[in-house]
């Protein structure tokens, strides 16, 4: 969950570059919202047709809605803002700050690009009727070579990029990210046995792979928001 904050005043980019970034953010945001919205609608319709809504279904729908809120928040956060005072102050420190921001924007662009390639590839070449969120693994079909490529891209997106991102951020943001990762990790360590025990007691459906993933992701997000608020 490595994050980078854009500058609040001044972008360090030319007007043309600012416009390009804004267009990219709008296109990316709209595509992400359409994808998530369609996923949510499809899942809700499948759940209502099945007539057996479970707590897992509600958790999945909540997770998708949370992701949509995250996209909207990210759009607001990363929207380049140009102030009237930009360009007046150009000390060596501010020049380096702008270089740092440009590097971070490039990192975000690469991450978004990888996400887009993964989403596009799975959407175009999906050969089965399976649903990643539903856990019907038998119906999930991808060409083997594409599956290998996507696995490599996912490793890059979920392991290499975040670890590399830790090298780009300072102590302050690293502390926030450590809290976020700790929150996600602890939630899974506690969440799985708690879920299993509650299932054994007849309270909830059996543990679900995507549910565990969602617990980690949502907990990480909530922990990060908490760290940003407290630190």
């Amino acid at each position: 969950m490595t994050n980078f904050d854009p500058p609040r005043t001044g972008t360090g980019m030319s007007e043309g570059a600012v416009m390009l970034v804004r267009i990219a953010i709008v296109i990316g945001g709209v595509i992400a919202l359409i994808f998530l919205g369609a996923t949510a609608v499809g899942f809700i319709s499948a759940v209502t047709e099945g007539d057996n809504t479970s707590a897992t279904d509600i958790a999945i729908i909540s997770g998708i809605l949370l992701a949509m809120a995250g996209v909207i928040y990210a759009t607001w956060r990363f929207w380049p803002r140009v102030t009237s005072g930009e360009g007046l102050s150009a000390g060596p420190g501010e020049v380096r700050t702008r270089q740092r921001n440009r590097t971070q924007m490039l990192y975000i662009g690469v991450a978004a690009g990888i996400g887009g390639v993964i989403g596009l590839a799975t959407g175009l070449f999906d050969q089965g009727d399976g649903n990643l969120f539903g856990g019907d693994w038998e119906d999930l079909k991808l060409p083997p070579l594409l599956a290998l490529v996507l696995a490599a891209l996912l490793m890059g997106a979920f392991m290499v990029l975040p670890l590399y991102g830790f090298r780009m951020i300072d102590d302050y943001k690293r502390e926030q990210n450590f809290i976020a990762f700790t929150g996600g990790c602890v939630s899974v360590l506690a969440g799985f046995p708690v879920w299993a025990v509650l299932h054994a007691g007849g309270f909830v459906p059996p543990p679900h792979a995507f549910g565990i993933f969602a617990i980690a992701y949502v907990s990480m997000f909530v922990s990060f928001i908490y760290a940003r608020w407290r630190l």
């Binding site: 904050d5 609040r8 700050t97 102590d171 302050y172 943001k173």
Partner: peptide, 24 residues
């Protein structure tokens, strides 16, 4: 500015703000 100091220290502006306010 905070950004100037942040650049000279090679940290984020948010880090400078957090140190100044005693949060970090």
């Amino acid at each position: 500015s905070q950004a100037e100091l942040a650049g000279r220290l090679d940290v984020s502006r948010q880090a400078v703000n957090a140190i100044e306010t005693g949060k970090h």
